[in-house]
Design a protein around this nucleic acid. Structure first.
Length: 648
DNA sequence: TGGGGGACCTTTTTT
DNA sequence: AGGTCCCCCA
């Protein structure tokens, strides 16, 4: 080990190899807790140390938070004025597209639609085209469109390939075309477009492609097992010139197949990049031997994986607690009691996370925490940026930023109520189809309510040229009397909470107040569109974290509770029929178990309330697979007094 | 026009 | 059980 190199300090031999192999394609198979982030960070530092210019390094991570952390840690290792470009696939693509929007037929101030916006647009199109959104779920259509985009199949190609198939595909074909053209007309992109359009751009325009290929001499991709085909293509094109491509991941932790991630990207890496170097990192630094062994038991049943064995020098540790309870309330009680006991052993609340398979489980467990007065935070669920009040104000800002955005207008026109109903809105929509801008329609109308709205919005647009984002947002709230709209009496708890959410939004807008007004607004809207829930997770406050297993990926906690370990819930009912999906549930379970450093509790209920009615349940097959010497089974026979339990 | 009330449908995971 | 959608009345 070179003493001079801080980038190589404190690494095991495998990690050192990963850091030092800088030329050509490299695949790191990094088991859970094997120091993946560490290897990535040190590799960036090592490149800088070797004199590679920061702008020639591109690091793609799964979340913006991960990017931020790596940035921070790199700076601790090596002092550099400029930092390499680090971010998610989506943020990288936005960056490229902002500079080249005209080349793909968009204006450079395009907006990004979230799933809500997508859904309203699809619904609108379905109705126009005479499809019944109740018969064919808009989400199903969107799922198919997303699938196509992830496979780089645009609407024309989709029409050629699937346009004549079954009714479902015919519907998708019809909607897809309109959907895509509407997006372009609105100057809006959905998440999948960001990647697809970037790849299309680079394929079409060799000069642009070459520019980025020359720029990104060293490319690093984290969580490679969760990349989809369009992302795979993007990476392939960008790395074509220098082929200094470093990917890191773990096929055991591939849990985004439903989002069209393709596990074959990691399984076939050396086929795609023939002289690739492959390094396995299998020493785990996170968990006890028992936890590792349990995880290994779960995962080894999967075929079609790169079989590797995780090992650790850590202690044996405690046995895993498996707990049977009567129902969700008892489950909550068990979790609370166990947490209280663990506090006695010096485990802090922030050292603990409760993981569940579905968001629907969060409500019951949340109630237990409320009742016990133990502070907690929930990651995900109804996300901050999807809350009604936040979306309302964002819709105003988005429409001001981009008056073509009729979906945002659809949110704005009658909030708060100003006597413009669906009928009037449809008139505007009809005019809009004839390519008359919304603002024009409002102005030309002889309906007074339209004039008022026009004046209001026009005023906002003028102010947006001179006001900072915060000032503009406050101005809007003030002018539309939003606070009064939320809570006319000032007494409802709900209204207060909503108003507080809006106040919280200002902590984000403030970051952009120093920018030029319009630019600050655009940047703010962009951050909001791409932010992730786990990005907000800060280690500061001493509270228990509640989240789905998916959200827990990449995190670790001394104490983990996996609740609802029941058949049909985990593995989920929707996955049981399909071996591929079942394999993914298994990997998800593996991810959950390997989040735990020392203590792991897994609970299951005999009965669970599903859609309001109580159903009998069976323990998860995953629990039954754990060998006896690793687990400590505990049956909680106490029941609520009015619960009668039948259990066979 | 919009709010209230009832029917009905929902729950997988999210950038 | 809870949210959403739709219809009808004021």
């Amino acid at each position: 080990m070179s003493k001079e190199s801080p980038a190589l300090k404190g690494l095991n031999p495998k990690q050192q190899e990963a850091v030092q192999t800088i030329d050509g394609p490299v695949l790191i198979l990094a088991g859970a807790g094997s120091g993946k982030t560490r290897a990535l960070t040190h590799r960036v530092a090592y490149l800088l140390e070797k004199g590679v210019a920061p702008e020639n390094i591109l690091a793609i991570t799964f979340t913006n938070k991960a990017a931020g952390e790596i940035k921070e840690r790199v700076q601790k290792l090596i002092k550099s004025q400029r930092t390499p470009l680090m971010g998610t696939f989506h943020s990288l693509c936005v960056r490229i597209l902002r500079m080249n929007a005209d080349k793909v037929g968009y204006g450079k101030n395009f907006v990004i639609y979230d799933s809500d916006d997508q859904k309203s647009l699809v619904k609108q199109i379905m109705i126009e085209k005479g499809f019944d959104p109740k018969k064919t779920a808009p989400n199903a259509i969107l799922g198919r469109i997303s699938w196509a985009k992830n496979k780089m199949i645009g609407w024309k190609k989709f029409k050629d390939q699937y346009g004549e198939e079954d009714f479902y595909n015919k519907t998708v074909t019809a909607v897809y075309e309109d959907y895509q053209q509407s997006l372009q007309k609105f100057n809006a992109m959905d998440f999948d477009d960001l990647i697809m359009l970037t790849v299309q751009l680079l394929k079409k325009d060799k000069n642009t492609a070459e520019k980025y290929q020359k720029l990104f001499k060293y490319i690093l991709v984290d969580e490679y097992q969760d990349t989809n085909m369009s992302q795979y293509e993007l990476v392939k094109i960008l790395s074509e010139k220098y082929k200094n491509l470093f990917v890191i991941g773990d096929d055991y932790q591939s849990i985004y197949g439903w989002r069209n991630a393709d596990i074959r990207n990691i399984l076939n890496f050396e086929k795609d990049y023939p002289n690739a170097k492959i390094i396995e990192m299998t020493q785990n630094y996170r968990s006890t031997k028992k936890i590792i062994e349990a995880a290994q038991h779960i995962i080894q049943k999967n075929e079609d994986q790169r079989h590797k064995k995780l090992w650790t020098e850590n202690d044996d540790g405690q046995t895993i607690k498996i707990v049977e309870v009567a129902n969700e309330r008892e489950e909550g009680k068990y979790v609370i009691e166990a947490i209280k006991k663990s506090q006695g052993r010096g485990i802090k609340l922030k050292d603990t996370a409760v993981l569940y398979r579905t968001h629907a489980q969060s409500r019951a467990i949340e109630e237990s925490f409320l009742k016990a007065n133990i502070p907690y935070k929930i990651i995900g669920g109804v996300k901050f940026y999807e809350r009604r009040e936040v979306k309302d104000i964002l819709a105003y800002l988005r429409f001001i930023s981009n008056p073509e955005d009729i979906i945002s207008f659809g949110r704005v026109y009658n909030i708060p109520p100003r006597k413009i109903g669906k009928v009037s809105y449809n008139k505007i929509l009809a005019e809009y189809q004839k390519k008359i801008p919304v603002m024009q329609v409002l102005e030309d109308s002889d309906y007074p309510a339209f004039h008022l709205l026009h004046a209001l919005l026009k005023g906002f647009m003028t102010k947006s040229e001179e006001y900072s984002v915060t000032k503009l947002a406050k101005h809007i709230l003030d002018r539309i009397a939003y606070k009064e709209y939320l809570d006319p009496t000032g007494k409802s708890l709900d209204g207060q909470a909503r108003w507080e959410n809006i106040q919280e939004l200002f902590t984000v807008t403030k970051k952009y107040d120093k920018e030029k007004p319009r630019e600050g607004l655009a940047k703010f809207l962009e951050e909001v569109a791409l932010i992730q829930e786990t990005d907000k997770l800060d280690k500061g406050s001493d509270v228990v974290t509640l989240m789905t297993v998916h959200s827990a990926k990449g995190l670790e906690f001394p104490q983990i509770f996996m609740i609802g370990m029941e058949e049909h819930l985990f593995p989920h009912a929707r996955s049981i029929m399909e071996p591929k999906e079942l394999a993914e549930e298994r990997r998800l379970c593996y991810v959950g178990i390997t989040r735990a450093m020392r203590d792991l509790h897994m609970t299951f209920c005999r009965q669970r309330t599903i859609f309001g009615s109580s159903e009998n349940t069976l323990p998860s097959r995953f629990l039954l697979e754990l060998p006896g010497h690793l687990v400590d089974f505990q049956q909680d026979t106490s029941v609520d007094e009015d619960d009668i339990v039948y259990y066979s």
